[in-house]
Amino acid sequence: MTEPLLAGALAEEATKKSGLIWVRGADGGTARPLWHVWHEGAAWLVGDGPVEQPFPEGLAAGARAEVSVRSKDKGGRVVEWTALVEEPAPRSEAWEAAVAELKGKRLNAPDGEGVVERWAAECRVLRLAPVTAHTELPSGSLAARPVASPATTREPVPDALPRLLFRRKRRR
């Protein structure tokens, strides 16, 4: 009985302290880092607008999402939890309360005080309510393979590089 309670408390505290959470939609695609705010027992997100963060595929009202929370100092995974995605109607009471919190955390908004109007017209505000928390983390890295790109090709190391890097200063 205490294990689910402790896991839920760990998920809440870790999410509150983290600046970003990694969210994977219902389709099981790639997880995206999203800034959020913890408000009234859930993580709230704003995005999918022309200037705001893009949400991962499959993040829709009524769907489930997987949330991974990482440590602020070391970057390692602390906890993962499953969330139920809710999308309150713009200008509803819950929406207004969450947007007031989100507005305070939004850095460098291009329209300053008009951000709330823009969010109501162009963006989606989502509530990720925790359903279950998983304290047993996977043993693998879960790192995605890099996308193929000509920028990732390696050239041989120039012959003079080791001499330049490891040249000792001569004593006089």
Rank of each mutant, 00 (worst) to 15 (best):
C123A: 13
E117G: 03
V67T: 05
K74V: 10
K103Y: 09
T82L: 13
E136S: 08
C123L: 04
A148T: 09
A26E: 15
S68I: 07
S68V: 09
L10F: 07
L126H: 01
A151Q: 14
S68Q: 04
G112C: 12
V79P: 06
G25R: 05
A60P: 00
G114K: 14
L107I: 14
A148D: 13
R118K: 09
G58F: 03
F55R: 14
S139P: 02
A143T: 15
V51N: 09
T30E: 12
K105M: 06
A31R: 15
A11I: 09
G104T: 04
V37A: 11
W44F: 07
L126N: 06
L165R: 13
P33Q: 01
W119Y: 14
V79Q: 01
E155Q: 12
L161G: 02
P33S: 02
R91L: 10
I21Y: 03
A120W: 00
K16N: 01
W38P: 12
R154P: 01
G62Y: 06
E101I: 02
F55A: 14
G29T: 05
L137I: 12
T15R: 01
K105A: 15
G112I: 06
S92L: 06
E80C: 04
K17Q: 14
K103M: 11
V125M: 13
A89K: 15
G58I: 02
A98I: 08
K17M: 11
P33N: 00
V23S: 04
G8H: 12
D111S: 09
R167A: 14
K16Y: 02
K17I: 04
E3L: 12
L142E: 13
A61S: 12
P130W: 11
K16L: 07
E113C: 00
S68Y: 01
A120Y: 00
D27W: 00
V147N: 07
K72N: 03
W35N: 06
P110L: 10
E86C: 00
L142K: 07
A89E: 15
S71P: 03
D159H: 13
V23Y: 00
T135R: 15
P4S: 08
I21S: 00
L6P: 00
L20G: 01
R70P: 04
D159L: 13
